[in-house]
């Protein structure tokens, strides 16, 4: 129904505000435009109150723009008749693991979305099993969710989305309540899904997650203020500092070493890159001396 080269999600001049009393509105998003390409891994960062969560809720029509339009695979989110189609296409995982699980047994919860879109029972069974296997929670299918850890609950939430076979998953600060182990779990799942072609949008303030993305959008006061690859964005340490955002330690180390030894790359952002660069430096000197 839509052109494959067409971006999956197109956000056009979107403005949005929450209505306070006396018709006063509190502007949250101001004239935002960007695209999410098919198969892309996009991170949206910004400190609390920058509007990033509100923006995320526009991507599957949970909120609709007051001005401008959001198009999902060619469908306008303002069209009420298309809402189900849009949400089948763009799934969303939220911050609190506890507050998005509906059922009292894991597999029932995964089936919840499928029941809503009227999938026949036999197909449902198969899709639920598949989705649970994708997040590595198949063995837990008969368990009540309240005995699971936060990371496991979030994997259940993701699998509930996967069962609906969406083109894109939006993670709205989905790791912020998890411990490091749980966070690693989720990142591993997302990485695997991305490799299988899933489009991923993650809203986060963990810089270690941003490193995984193809592209970063930085928000401040309802506007997009920076955009680029994580490598480019993390180069601008001072600008990020002004925006009250951090950079990963690996990036900080890379830049500090680069200042002393210019041959050492200053644009590294991941720990393994730093280790590799040390090795490469040794290899390079060996070549120079050996040859």
């Amino acid at each position: 129904m839509s052109d494959e080269r067409e971006p999956l999600i197109r956000v056009e001049h979107v403005s949005f505000g929450y209505t306070m009393n006396d018709k006063r509105t509190l502007p949250v998003l101001r004239d935002i435009s960007f695209e999410v390409r098919r198969g892309e891994y996009l991170a949206i960062i910004g400190h609390n109150g920058s509007g990033k969560s509100t923006l995320a809720k526009h991507l599957n029509g949970l909120l609709v723009p007051q001005q401008g339009n959001v198009w999902v695979a060619g469908m306008n989110t303002k069209d009420k008749g298309l809402r189900k189609e849009i949400r089948k296409c763009v799934g969303m995982v939220f911050q609190h693991p506890d507050n998005q699980i509906v059922a009292t047994i894991v597999e029932d919860d995964v089936a919840f979305g499928l029941e809503n879109i009227g999938v026949p029972a036999d197909e449902m069974r198969q899709r639920v099993d598949e989705a649970l296997q994708m997040v590595g929670m198949f063995a837990f299918r008969h368990r009540p969710p309240h005995h699971l850890s936060g990371g496991q609950k979030q994997r259940i939430a993701i699998s509930g989305i996967l069962a609906m076979r969406p083109a894109c998953i939006v993670l709205d600060e989905a790791t912020s309540m998890l411990d490091s182990y749980g966070r690693q779990d989720i990142l591993r799942v997302m990485r695997a899904l991305h490799q299988q072609g899933m489009t991923i949008v993650t809203v986060t303030h963990h810089m270690s997650e941003v490193v995984e993305a193809d592209r970063v959008i930085v928000m401040e006061a309802g506007r997009i203020v920076m955009e680029g690859t994580p490598r480019d964005v993390f180069q601008q340490q001072e600008r990020l500092h002004e925006l009250q955002l951090d950079i990963p330690d690996a990036s900080r180390i890379s830049q500090a070493v680069h200042r002393v030894v210019p041959a050492f790359s200053g644009t590294l952002i991941r720990t393994d890159e730093v280790v590799e660069e040390v090795e490469n430096m040794h290899l390079r000197t060996l070549e120079v001396h050996g040859g």
Binding site: L62, F94, D98, N116, G118, A157
Partner: peptide, 27 residues
């Protein structure tokens, strides 16, 4: 209240509409 709000959002995001016909998983 906060939980209820979150839950409603999560249910909506998974295509729940109270009036529509649903299928059932458990048989």
């Amino acid at each position: 209240l906060k939980r209820a709000e979150d839950l409603i959002l999560a249910m909506e995001a998974r295509c729940y509409t109270p009036t529509d016909e649903r299928t059932t998983y458990k048989r």
